[in-house]
């Protein structure tokens, strides 16, 4: 039996997929906030994914993949029963959880799914959970029902206003805190670094509300060995893979992380993506169906 078998794959919204993979050892040990490093095939990079969910009994882990570069595109082409070449984890420190009181969880893009396990855990610990889900427009929102099950309140926010509020997570937060005067004890955000840095700016200016962000960095080994994922935190160098990935957002040097470290390979990334010549997935499905019909 091959390791790391893909049991279930579902395209939640266009180009964003939910993966359920069999890795019993990881499912047994993982804590909310931890991640795995994945190699699709033996020539792949090692790419980190925060786990959204897991099932110890079935030995499965669940994560969300947004197609952006070569590896995630390769993953989009995988089919159920295919296997990954390598999955390592659980890595990183678990998210900081406690009974904080009222907690706001903000998720954007792939972070919508990624923040799910933290939501469940915080609910178990007796927190009052407000979930803010952000996307470009209505058609890119997913996992709504799952979040409703563990949230006392779910707020949607879209860039074009097609669903819920119009704007971004930080706009909603500002509105809640300034206009509505609501008391928030703890904020956690997962999503793109730009969104998280802006949330951090807002909550810092509104009286330093404790805000934790799960950073996205480039990684190689995930064990602290290479230092590729380093960031400046409170004036010191930290490694996202072993010291994080969750950090106090107010102490992160966001400009360095967003503007410098994470754009190190823009040229190479687009080159390798161009080098990969996939066909259109929908077209492939249609063709397969046509072939099938012809053979009948």
């Amino acid at each position: 039996m091959s390791k790391f078998k893909l049991l279930k794959k579902e395209e939640c919204v266009p180009n964003l997929h939910k993966f359920v993979v069999s890795v019993p050892d990881i499912a047994r040990k993982v804590e909310p906030g931890q991640f795995v490093l994945i190699m699709v095939d033996e020539k792949s990079e090692r790419i980190p994914f925060t786990l959204a969910d897991w099932d110890e009994k079935d030995g499965t882990i669940t994560f969300f993949v947004q197609e952006v570069g070569l590896s995630t595109t390769k993953m989009a082409f995988m089919e159920e029963k295919d296997s990954f070449y390598s999955i390592v984890g659980p890595l990183g420190e678990p998210a900081y959880v406690d009974n904080f009181g009222t907690v706001v969880l903000g998720g954007g893009c792939f972070g919508l799914g990624a923040i799910y396990s933290v939501a469940k855990k915080l609910k178990d610990l007796g927190n009052n959970i407000i979930t803010i889900l952000e996307a470009k427009n209505e058609s890119r929102l997913y996992y709504e029902d799952e979040f409703r099950a563990f949230s006392d309140e779910v707020i949607f926010v879209t860039s074009d206003g097609s669903k819920g509020e119009k704007g971004h997570i930080y706009d909603v937060l500002e509105e809640m805190i300034v206009s509505q005067g609501r008391k928030i004890d703890h904020i956690k955000v997962i999503g793109c670094n730009v969104m998280m840095s802006k949330v951090s700016d807002v909550t810092k200016s509104l009286g330093n509300i404790p805000t934790y962000a799960t950073v996205s960095t480039i990684m190689v080994d995930g064990t602290g060995m290479c230092g590729c994922c380093r960031l400046t935190y409170d004036g010191k160098t930290k490694f996202a893979c072993v010291d994080g990935p969750e950090f106090d957002a107010h102490k992160i040097n966001w400009d360095e992380l967003i503007g410098i470290r994470n754009t190190s390979y823009i040229r190479e990334e687009s080159l390798s993506l161009q080098n990969f010549s996939p066909q259109c997935r929908s077209l492939a499905k249609i063709l397969a169906k046509m072939n099938e019909e012809e053979s009948i």
Binding site: S44, L70, E268, S272, N275
Partner: peptide, 10 residues
């Protein structure tokens, strides 16, 4: 061996 292998290097 990039881009035959996916991991880049400056």
């Amino acid at each position: 061996l990039f881009p035959d292998y996916d991991t880049p290097l400056v």
